[in-house]
Design a protein around this nucleic acid. Structure first.
Length: 885
RNA sequence: GGGCGAUUAACUCAGCUGGUAGAGUGCAACCCUUACAAGGUUGAAGUCGCAGGUUCAAGCCCUGCAUCGCCCA
């Protein structure tokens, strides 16, 4: 499987394929139904079977994959349950389009034949999105893949429906619902998307029966006037105080309708007179109920006007709007029309303007379910993260309306209700009934509607695990640890899973709900086909590799903020992948045997330092992942790998690795390098699974897959390796090197030119540190020589840098540019003085000394001493240089 | 109309229970130094949207305002 070297540049495509196949073949993604190990489980938000992977999926699944891979490294028995959703309306639309291409409609071929077509379609192309998830590296337990229309899941749906029905929580009724005239089905409130559009507000005069005058009503939908059953005014409205008429004439018809009074009418809006259309407006529906008005449906299910529209019947609703307005103008009844921005409801599947319409539908009485679901979050059994979404969740749950669950389409779970045509009995059973339970008739007719897709998705966390059977899987993995989702389906899906889970399992479906951001384009705009700003994740993977893409998503997944995605960012992280690759190439030039045993007593300060930093990084990555702060985890490891491991540690390790300090030192250096690189690969694996596996497989010190490795630094190892004192010491050394480098750069000293440096310090500890790390300093700052000097022997022609209590003098032997050094020192002194003054201001403030906590005061005092010391040294140096000039 | 969020370097964003403002990209200078130019070293760059308030101390807490975005009606 592995070779013993790495190519010069990292080439993702074939490596990704190779390792994904390897993981699958070796069962690394498999969960055990029963196990002694601790369990960790996530159910995937099932993508639509018609779906194509978009950025939202990518972010969603990368986050889940990071968590799953991380838990495996910790030794958990991990279940990541995959699957797809049958997506009733969406899928039906796709297949209908296919048929239309062949000149067929679903009505022509009939229900049974149509459903066969859908299944065939699914077999052919339904798995596309699954393969796309695999390209991302998703480590789902694919053998368990579920589909909401599977037999088992359908059984669960049936069971839930029957129980809710028998408990009186499902009912059928005539209500106003949202109707899509194109899909020819009812939609739930949630399935309507509102959009601001330009329209007109038409003011129409309805004449009184016996007078020419009348009331003017305002509407944006004049075509609905044919369904008007009354005109309503507010009883407190002064304009209508003297109104005697009780009736009014409905223009363009021969109907006379009542004038009713109700304080529901908004005095501010329009003319104060409201046309009441109970069959085509939700508010009017309730007003109609209250006043006992008839509900006349005038717009048909296909969007064409019905008989009630008189000579306009048979006309399309929008055509009718135009024609009716023309007719009103002719009759002098259109008072005015003014442009208005108003929100128009569109079908979330096909964007057709939704018609509120009266219809007989099935509903779930959600209040009792919502109570349990809402309480579960209130009392902390389920945590919503970030927490501010809890409020939105409560808001919705507490004001929830009954859920319309019937859809007039064919693709979906058919509602298990039968009617007896002989005696009218309604039969609802889990097993298809063959005859009427009352009269014995065998002519039972099943309800033709199917259930809302979200009805089956609401059961997903337990139906996928085998419910209603009490399976081992359920026992091991339910409730799931976390659900990862975007907030756009918080109500559609999460809320409903909470309702069904708490009701049927008596247990929440997940302990945590992590709500991640929406992925937008680089300007923060929603990605959409019409805007042409969609970035295809698969293309990004092709170009930059899955690892770079995944890392980008993780790095930008800060809580509570949208992810703004642009290819240039992915490119940046591809550089990171490459950096890791090259660092590993370098390491492989040196390490050749399995030896990662490290004797902490024998290793150098810088080696202790890198181990300490590595331990600390592992903790930060751990905390980041466990607290859903993936950006913090990503940035911790990025920072460590690039700027500590590569920039500092590898550079310091080179002399030892090249055997310039003897064989023993070389072997120690090898073992530390080997160990740290191995740790890095494991820590990084959840984020960048492919490249880490490739490198890990080649490292001589490792065996088998990185997926089988243990996450580095348990509590004990952390305590052994983390050493803040060592980190502080190294910060001093690194600061010293940077100080000298700074002088080199400011004084335009060529990198190839070696320089002489003298150090003066009264600090014993710093003196020892410098002495012990002299060769590192000399190497990294490119020094010819480095000695200590006494205060009275400070070289005249030199530039200085102050680090801690030590001053370094870079000898410039006549070539010093005094002006440059003076400017540099003055600038530094200015900055230092500023800082010193702010510190002093606090220290001389009695209130501060009185009220601030002791530790803060002590810290400020320490800072004061440091700053004052540095200030004096800067002044001395400046004075000295100025004298020289 | 109700609710939520944002406003910090040129750009994209971090910033914990209040304690001297950080990163990446970009920019500038120098460098092909034997893992990496997809690189290295060094540097410049911020009135933390505005106005008040609380506090010894405010990017962070409170109030108001402005601008932008999202969700629900």
């Amino acid at each position: 499987m592995s070779s013993d070297h790495l190519d010069k540049g990292y080439e993702p495509s074939c490596i990704e394929k190779k390792w994904y196949t390897y993981w699958l073949d070796n069962g690394f993604f498999k969960a055990e139904d029963k196990s002694d190990k601790k369990a960790f489980s996530i159910v995937i938000p099932p993508p639509n079977v018609t779906g194509v992977l978009h950025m939202g999926h990518a972010l969603n699944n990368v986050i889940q994959d990071i968590m799953c891979r991380y838990r495996r490294l910790l030794g958990y028995n991990v279940l990541w349950m995959p699957g797809t959703d049958h997506a009733g309306i969406a899928t039906q639309n796709v297949v209908e389009r296919d048929l239309a291409a062949k000149g067929l409609t679903r009505d022509q071929i009939g229900r049974e034949e149509f459903i066969k077509h859908v299944w065939k379609w699914r077999e052919k192309s339904g798995g596309a999105i699954i393969n796309q998830l695999k390209r991302l590296g998703a480590s789902c337990d694919w053998d368990r893949e579920r589909f909401t229309m599977d037999e088992g899941l359908s059984d669960a749906v049936r069971k839930v429906f029957v129980r809710l029905y028998k408990e009186g929580l499902i009912y059928q009724g005539q209500y106003i619902i949202n109707w899509c005239p194109r899909c020819k089905t009812a939609l739930a409130d949630l399935e309507v998307e509102y959009e601001e559009e330009d329209g007109y507000l038409y003011y129409i005069r309805y004449p009184f029966v016996n007078r020419k005058q009348g009331l003017t009503v305002a509407t944006t939908r004049p075509e609905t006037m044919f369904g008007d059953m009354a005109v309503a005014v507010n009883p407190t409205d002064k304009r209508f105080k003297d109104l005697e008429e009780k009736q009014i004439r409905l223009p363009l018809t021969d109907r006379v309708i009542p004038i009713i009074k109700d304080d529901y009418v908004d005095i501010q809006f329009g003319t104060g007179a409201l046309k009441v259309t109970p069959a085509h407006d939700p508010n009017d529906f309730f007003l109609g109920e209250k006043h006992g008005l008839e509900k006349l449906k005038v717009i048909g299910d296909d969007g064409q006007m019905l008989d009630g529209a008189g000579r306009f019947s048979g006309m399309d609703r929008f055509e009718c709007r135009k024609k009716a307005v023309e007719a009103l103008i002719e009759q002098g009844l259109l008072v005015k029309k003014e442009p208005i921005k108003h929100s128009v409801g569109n079908c979330y599947r096909c964007r057709t303007v939704v018609e509120p319409s009266i219809s007989k539908q099935w509903f779930v009485k959600v209040a009792p379910l919502a109570k349990k679901a809402s309480d579960a979050v209130r009392n902390g059994r389920t945590n919503i993260i970030p927490d501010n979404w809890s409020k939105t969740y409560f808001e919705w749950m507490d004001n929830i309306r009954d859920w319309c669950i019937s859809r007039q389409i064919w693709w979906g779970h058919r509602i298990p209700v039968w009617k007896c045509p002989d005696c009218g009995q309604e039969i609802v059973e889990e097993i298809d009934p063959s005859h009427c339970t009352v009269c014995g008739s065998s002519k039972l007719v099943q309800e033709t509607d199917v259930l809302d897709t979200w009805f089956s998705s609401a059961l997903w966390p337990f139906s996928t695990m085998g419910w209603p059977e009490n399976t081992d899987l359920l026992k091991t993995f339910y409730p799931t640890n976390v659900l990862v989702t975007g907030f756009d389906i918080l109500f559609f899906w999460v809320a409903r899973m909470m309702m069904m889970g708490t009701y049927f399992m008596d247990e929440v479906p997940f302990n945590d709900v992590y709500i991640h951001a929406l992925v937008r384009d680089e300007h923060g705009k929603k990605m959409s086909k019409s805007k042409g700003n969609v970035i295809d994740p698969l293309k990004v993977i092709d170009e930059y590799g899955a690892d770079a893409f995944r890392f980008t998503l993780a790095a930008f997944a800060a809580q509570g903020r949208d992810v703004k995605m642009s290819e240039s960012r992915v490119e940046g992280y591809r550089h990171f992948v490459n950096k890791l690759w090259n660092a590993s190439r370098f390491a492989l030039m040196h390490i050749s045997v399995k030896d990662t045993r490290i004797d902490l007593k024998k290793i150098s300060l810088v080696e202790k330092w890198i181990l300490s930093r590595c331990a600390q990084t592992s903790l930060e990555v751990k905390q980041g992942i466990e607290n859903y702060k993936f950006n913090e985890a990503a940035s911790a490891i990025y920072q460590f790998v690039w700027h500590e491991f590569c920039d500092w540690y590898l550079e310091t390790a080179k002399p030892a690795l090249y055997e310039k300090e003897g064989v023993q030192r070389r072997d120690i250096a090898r073992s530390v390098l080997s160990k740290v690189l191995e740790d890095i690969l494991i820590m990084l694996h959840p984020f960048m699974p492919f490249v880490t596996e490739e490198i890990y497989s080649i490292l001589p010190a490792t065996n088998g897959s990185v997926m089988a490795a243990a996450y580095p630094y348990n509590e004990k190892d952390y305590k052994i390796n983390r050493n803040e004192a060592v980190e502080k010491d190294m910060d001093f050394i690194f600061g010293l090197i940077s100080g000298i480098r700074n002088i080199r750069s400011e004084m335009n000293i060529q990198p190839s030119m070696k320089i002489k440096v003298l150090a003066h310090t009264a600090d014993g500890k710093e003196k020892i540190l410098i002495a012990e790390n002299k060769s590192i300093i000399a190497n990294l700052a490119a020094l010819e020589s480095f000695y200590f000097c006494e205060a009275d022997l400070i070289p005249p022609s030199s530039a200085s840098a102050i680090i801690g209590n030590t001053t370094c003098f870079v000898l410039l032997e006549g070539v010093i540019e005094f002006d440059k050094e003076i400017i540099k020192l003055e600038k530094e002194l200015e900055k230092n003085t500023k800082e010193l003054l702010t510190i002093q201001k606090r220290l001389y403030n009695e209130n501060f000394l009185e009220k601030a906590p002791e530790e803060v005061i002590q810290k400020v005092k320490d800072q004061h001493i440091d700053l004052e010391g540095k200030n004096n040294k800067l002044k001395d140096n400046l004075e000295r240089i100025q004298k020289m000039k």
